[in-house]
Design a binder for these strands. Structure first.
Lengths: 233, 233
DNA sequence: GTGCCAGGGTGGTCCGACCACTAATGGGTG
DNA sequence: CACCCATTAGTGGTCGGACCACCCTGGCAC
């Protein structure tokens, strides 16, 4: 924080910190339009190039968004905005990390499902039931399964939880886990799990929901663990 | 993906996607050094400015890191690298979001503490005990409390869990929650909670650890909820 | 062999120009 | 008067080049 530190800190990073500070301080609120890149650059005493890099970083973080020709705006700053970056984890993660991610899901999903059982309204549960039919109907459609779990988490009404959960189970991650699911009777077992979870939600039974979700995640983890030991291309 | 789409996609974003693709395809592996910014820019047919913005975005995502004068490198791609971004959530979040974050922690911490009780080795538990003394000794030092909880999560051996947990409890978040803790006998109560958690770890008792962690997080949540209803400056 | 240091190469920063796009302006038209 | 549309100022997007700060290597002196 001293001048000496500032001297050695890249100007771009300093600009990032400064803009974040102004947002945290309320100078810029959600939805507000920022000064032009040129003005901001002049204000902070940096070149427009460096200012653009700083803005680019904050855009990547989900804090800002830019509209070509219109200006740069602060996002709604909702957790979903800020945690979108997260998906890169699933994009590049491999092997052991997959198990770690699954272990975190094993902690979150049961609690989330239980919470959903207590909070979800009729409409949400009905929607979840619809997704369940999609999974049954077509073949294991990854996106349908993804939507099923996502809808349950969304039913908790906790946007932050949704964002975290999304990050831990992006489409590409799901796809990687599911690739190979056709084998054995696993698909049928998972289908049973899903129905059991749905029944618990219908019964508004948090304990049953927690148990069903736990069993489901553990089944997936067991399968994945076995699959990783005899990896295929 | 068509030419028409590419025509309307900003070159910077295209560069980001391309580099991510090359990493995902294994062209660039963890720890590898990338071609120079100038070479990359020429390779992808963009200016160095745009290439730098693309690199800046990937640095922000935790995929790349640059060393002044030495080159740009792919990170180890460990979850901790990729989830660091995350902390911005805690930096700019307010009010209701704070409660949402705490609710997620209420799901994670008990499970994490229980896991730590089962997995932690003697050295790790001893280290946690040391941190506990720091909290007792000095005044409520935010950083010491942060370190205490972080050490517990780290003892689970799950790097992904550590990264997620860190994101949900960055220093600034902790500071905001703790600001005002001096009041009442709350500090003493929290101290009791910490000791109870440590005892459970020493006893290698996952159930007791889970219970102690649950009680602790719920106490904080209850306090925060009451505090938000009568907000101060 | 050891230590120093000078050079080349790299990322960091700045500048100025032009392009692409948006939105407000204002005149024309019904 | 109300509506539409071309104009135009202003904004972000891209480019090219220049220079600075820093690292690393290799050759030199000791």
């Amino acid at each position: 924080m001293t001048d000496l530190d500032a001297r050695r800190t890249p100007v771009t990073q300093r600009a990032v910190e400064e803009i974040k500070r102004r947002i945290a301080d309320g100078d810029f609120g959600p939805g507000d339009r920022l000064p032009t890149e040129r003005d901001l650059a002049a204000d902070l005493g940096v070149s427009r190039s460096s200012m653009r890099e700083a803005i680019r970083a904050l855009i990547t973080l989900g804090v800002l968004e830019s509209r070509h020709g219109a200006g740069v705006y602060v996002t709604a700053l909702r957790p979903a905005d800020l945690l979108e970056t997260f998906s890169v984890l699933a994009e590049v993660s491999q092997g052991a990390t997959l198990l770690e991610v699954l272990q975190v899901r094993r902690m979150l999903e049961p609690a989330a499902t239980a919470l959903a059982a207590a909070r979800a309204d009729d409409e949400q549960i009905a929607h979840i039931g619809t997704l369940l039919e999609d999974i049954d109907g077509e073949e294991g459609t990854v996106s349908a399964d993804l939507g099923f779990h996502r809808a349950i988490v969304a039913a908790t009404g906790n946007a932050t939880l949704v964002a975290v959960s999304d990050g831990l189970s992006s489409a590409s991650f799901h796809a990687r886990v599911w690739s190979g699911y056709r084998e054995a009777g696993l698909t049928a077992k998972l289908r049973e799990d899903h129905h059991r979870i749905h029944e618990a939600l219908l019964a508004r039974d948090p304990d049953a929901a927690r148990a069903a979700a736990t069993a489901h995640v553990m089944r997936v983890e067991r399968w994945l663990r076995a699959g990783l030991q005899t990896p295929a291309g």
